[in-house]
Simulated scan of single mutants.
Amino acid sequence: MKANSPQVKFITITAENEQQRIDNFLRTELKGVPKSLIYRILRKGEIRVNKKRVKPEYKLVVGDEVRIPPVRVAERNDHPVSAKLDKVAGLEQVILYEDDDILVINKPSGIAVHGGSGLTFGVIEGLRALRPQARFLELVHRIDRETSGVLVVAKKRSALRALHEQLRLKQMQKDYLALVKGNWSSACKVIQAPLLKNTLQSGERVVRVHREGKPSETRFKVEERFQFATLLRASPITGRTHQIRVHTQHADHPIAYDDRYGDRNFDRLLADTGLNRLFLHALQLQFIHPRTEEKMTIVAPLDNTLQQCLTLLRQQKQ
């Protein structure tokens, strides 16, 4: 079905978008329109705020009237997400909590949080297809593609700002479960090792402990011991890329089925458990609700693959 011909739009700015840059505001309003085109119509003065030209860095204030000229937005049916309807529908099944301000899902392993780097589909694209009426849906934080568990999405800009402030002040408590190689020492409760990010020629990102890296801290607690593995609760204090994965590797206890930082011999010992994915799961997230200021604790159940692995490891102990 063809979209209606685009028409001039006038939008009055509310507190929700106060102090947002006009270029970022337009990228949200004109989803599917190339950034180059957005900046072109800004330069040509086709975007008007209170009937005046503005620069891309102009910050909106309450009451501003924004004029947006006719711009053809890519139709949803042309978007790569349309080929992933099964995954989109699946996201509805993993929603843990939703209200007018936030949406929390139990992200499956193997799905990136957003498209890019050769990926056409991510959680955020899927949720936008699932909630086409939502004017605003943005990731509050990220977890690795291979990692499962709690992921929070803001449905309002005010919620995004409030939750980002909690992240900045380290007021969010994140707890992960990780199955690691060997017998983790109960005395090892904290790892503080600076992490440096490297991009290989292939474009793959690899992180390593390096004195010139960014300060990084993860706290650990032993949850359960098995014959040749330990189940850990890992709580990152900082939020570096691949932080838990690299810190456990640094301690010589890599996470099971980690294709970048793992140990193939350890993985082979787990072959009979049916495990076929990284055993790292964002189990729990504690934060303050951005509007009600209620303390929230969201728990994401383990998927069947991880549950089965633990069940079989427990049977081996008996």
Rank of each mutant, 00 (worst) to 15 (best):
R277H: 08
V180W: 12
L306Q: 04
R245H: 15
K107C: 05
D267G: 07
T12P: 00
T14E: 03
R131G: 01
N276C: 02
Q133H: 11
V49A: 10
R53D: 08
V207A: 03
R27H: 14
K52A: 07
P290T: 11
L151E: 08
Y39G: 04
L169H: 05
N24H: 14
Q7S: 09
K221S: 12
D303A: 01
E98S: 03
V94G: 07
H210M: 02
E125K: 04
A74V: 10
A129F: 15
G63L: 05
K55S: 05
F25W: 13
R314N: 07
L200D: 04
A251Y: 10
V180M: 14
P69A: 10
L312K: 13
I111R: 05
E224T: 09
G90E: 03
T273N: 11
N24C: 14
E223A: 08
D258E: 08
D258G: 09
W184E: 08
V113D: 11
F136L: 07
V153M: 14
T238P: 14
R260G: 10
I255F: 08
D78H: 05
P290R: 06
V153N: 00
C188I: 12
N17E: 15
K181G: 05
K189Q: 14
E224W: 04
R225N: 13
L167K: 08
K9W: 05
R128N: 07
V54Y: 05
I143Q: 13
K52G: 05
P108K: 02
V209S: 14
A251W: 15
G116Y: 05
Q93K: 12
E125T: 02
K295D: 03
T120G: 13
V190Y: 00
R268N: 11
N4I: 07
S117H: 06
E294T: 10
S148F: 06
V73Q: 12
L96I: 09
L42W: 01
D78G: 10
A129D: 04
R233C: 11
V209D: 13
Y97W: 13
V123E: 04
N4K: 02
P70S: 06
D101T: 00
K174S: 04
R48D: 01
K51I: 00
Q308R: 13
Q192L: 00
R264C: 11
L195I: 07
K181S: 11
V94A: 11
F226H: 11
Q307T: 07
L285P: 03
Q20C: 02
V61I: 02
Q20E: 12
L139V: 02
V88C: 06
K52Q: 11
D64G: 15
K189P: 00
E65F: 02
E224N: 03
T120W: 09
K155A: 15
R205W: 12
D86P: 00
